[in-house]
Design a protein around this nucleic acid. Structure first.
Lengths: 215, 215
DNA sequence: CCGGAGTTGTAAACGGTGATTACATAAATT
DNA sequence: AATTTATGTAATCACCGTTTACAACTCCGG
């Protein structure tokens, strides 16, 4: 029994340390939130010395940014799924679907959502992936609202840009309330996710008109 | 010149270390956000040894909670001022005023707002002051919406609780967007604070009806 | 197939952090 | 005045992100 401690790798080189570190960081995030992540602990779990991670990530921020990129991909996927599952030509219905998909994912993955939306833990502006995916979701949302406007579903005097801002703020606010723990005790009988769904519906129904009936 | 370094105090005891530490922490928050605060640096600025703060605060969290309590008082004051400056019996107008006061303060004091709304930096639930003031603002808001409802300013089929949730989420979302830096480049010509004001007005005008004309 | 060059790991260290402990001193109380 | 209590210091602990000098492996041109 010369080797009591499990040698996590046979050779001097790890082989796939970068991905292993990201996985370890993800695990740490899920265990105790963003604050629970330390480069040293991630290194330990990867079976590697404390300095090794810095061969693959310039800083802790860079590591967390990689975690954020993965999380953002899952968010994008969740939103795309929500959109594909609602087969309606109605842009307002589609808009509600992506809002709901977004919120559902945020509530189901609060710690990851915290990382994604942080501008101090990660280098958002420095990641083409993050900016791109974020922009893609935002553009999709604007597309749908534009369609709604063209179909006369918005009140005539509605300033479009401020409506977009309002919609973003509303969804973001609900997500952050849930994630930040601002949902103390809602009605005992109603789950927060249901309340969020209803609030979203209320918002959208007040911001839009009923579809024009076809002649 | 036996005393080159300015002795910040004449006696062994500081006299008012607790408040001095809070002030130092506030200064650090304003200089570089919540992450810029360290107990040691606060102690250094108070002219005291690194261990001294722990005679007055059980933990760093406790120190930041004290900072949050002060900040929350200023927020409450700002909201109260906004409310008093609008002398209208219309509950919807009053509601918009407190929303605006809240948002204005958050945008003007982003780092303090970050601390107030965090549940990891501070012990929100453990502070009667924080919970009380938060509850007071929320109750005031609910009061105004209740009045609005009694005056028939809400659509008949509006679920009241979800309207409250929607309003909270909307205002909180705008505040956090600003504070978290999710306001990249708005229209070059329109300041974010103005955009926020307009979005708030849009939200409220869609959620409420025009006042009933008398007779 | 060999030998240098580049890659990726280690070990050790630096300065910083929150927090605790044993001890010293000033203030308050009896 | 004596003693208890409050409040400071000094030293120390464990942890952190990051850097540096060095060692081991991989890979590629001769």
């Amino acid at each position: 029994m010369a080797e009591a401690k499990t040698p996590r790798r046979a050779s001097y080189h790890h082989g796939n340390l970068r991905d292993t570190l990201i996985d370890a960081a993800i695990q740490l995030v899920e265990e105790g939130g963003p604050d629970n992540v330390s480069v040293r602990e991630a290194a330990k779990r990867a079976g590697v010395s404390p300095g090794a991670p810095f061969r693959h990530f310039q800083s802790k921020t860079a590591l967390l940014t990689a975690v954020a990129e993965q999380a953002m991909s899952r968010l994008t996927e969740a939103v795309a799924n929500a959109l594909s599952e609602v087969d309606s030509a109605d842009p307002v219905v589609a808009f509600e679907a992506i809002g709901q998909g977004y919120l559902e994912w945020a509530i189901a993955n609060p710690t990851h959502f915290q990382i994604i939306s942080s501008r101090t833990l990660i280098d958002f502006d420095g990641s083409d992936s993050l900016r791109g995916q974020n922009e893609a979701i935002r553009r999709k949302m604007i597309d749908l609202l534009t369609q709604a406007q063209q179909q006369g579903r918005l009140a005539a005097n509605t300033d479009f840009d401020h409506l977009v801002l309002a919609a973003r703020a509303f969804v973001y606010g609900l997500a952050r309330m849930a994630v930040d723990g601002h949902f103390p005790q809602w009605h005992p009988s109603e789950a927060p996710s249901l309340a969020v769904r209803k609030a979203l519906h209320l918002f959208i129904s007040r911001m839009t008109n009923l579809p024009e009936s076809k002649s």
